[in-house]
């Protein structure tokens, strides 16, 4: 787990996007939402408890639907196997920002739902920034060996069922349940958490795929529209 020295740079634009809004449009049209985003950052930063749990494992063998890993570990999914077919190693990652932000969101909802949503947007921006930090850390390590990395893949993507993917990642990383845990329906607690795997090797080309391409909500997601 690397928790030290994680510094997240969250901007009001990121918080507005985290609420599903286009910052360029909404900043002029509803200045109060920009003020709320700034307030969420100001008060929210102290509530973050960012943690990244990561483990990189050597690939032993790859079949058409299975990746055999060292220590008798296994990923069994045709989509993931296809996507990571050129990986020599796989990095398993769980990130969380802790539960204080979601507690703040719940506490504010009845009295000020607009500010509550701003804090939720801040939480979304923070977990996304933390995940990006984790990916970048893996990328830098890979680059030192002249290797590159795949895009991150998360359970719940169109061809990787949530229940199977979460079980695989959690069984490999075995995080402290006080830091992050799974509900019986495979939702992570704290809610602002992300799980993912990244292939490390040669031949990964980021130009031909993006994480959003594999999201079940890719056709309708406003968050994606406002990020593009």
């Amino acid at each position: 787990m690397f928790a030290a020295a994680i510094s997240l740079d969250i901007t009001p634009e990121m918080v507005l996007r985290g609420q599903g809004a286009n910052p360029a449009i909404i900043t002029n049209r509803k200045p109060v939402l920009l003020e709320n985003a700034e307030r969420a950052i100001q008060e929210g930063m102290a509530l973050l408890s960012p943690k990244i749990i990561e483990r990189t494992i050597e690939v032993i063998k790859i079949s058409h639907d299975r990746i055999y890993l060292e220590n008798n570990l296994l990923i069994e999914n045709r989509f993931i196997t296809r996507e990571l077919s050129s990986a020599g190693r796989i990095s398993f990652i769980i990130c969380t920002i802790g539960s204080a932000i979601e507690e703040k969101v719940s506490a504010l909802y009845r009295s000020d739902p607009v500010l509550s949503l701003a804090f939720d947007g801040f939480g979304t921006a923070a977990i996304e920034a933390l995940a990006a930090f984790a990916c970048e850390t893996v990328r830098i390590r890979a680059k030192e060996e002249d290797l590159c990395i795949s895009i991150p893949y998360s359970p719940g993507m169109i061809e990787w069922p949530l229940e199977k993917g979460q079980n695989q990642i959690f069984s490999i990383l075995q995080p402290d349940p006080l830091v992050v845990r799974l509900t019986p329906s495979f939702q992570m607690i704290p809610k602002k958490s992300m799980s993912m795997i990244i292939g490390i090797g040669t031949g990964f080309n980021h130009n031909d795929r993006q994480t959003c391409d594999f999201c079940a909500a890719r056709q309708t997601c406003r968050y994606r529209l406002n990020r593009d």
Binding site: G20, R29, K30, V32, L33
Partner: peptide
Amino acid sequence: YFVPEMLV
């Protein structure tokens, strides 16, 4: 309109 505008 965006989600936060609906809330406002």
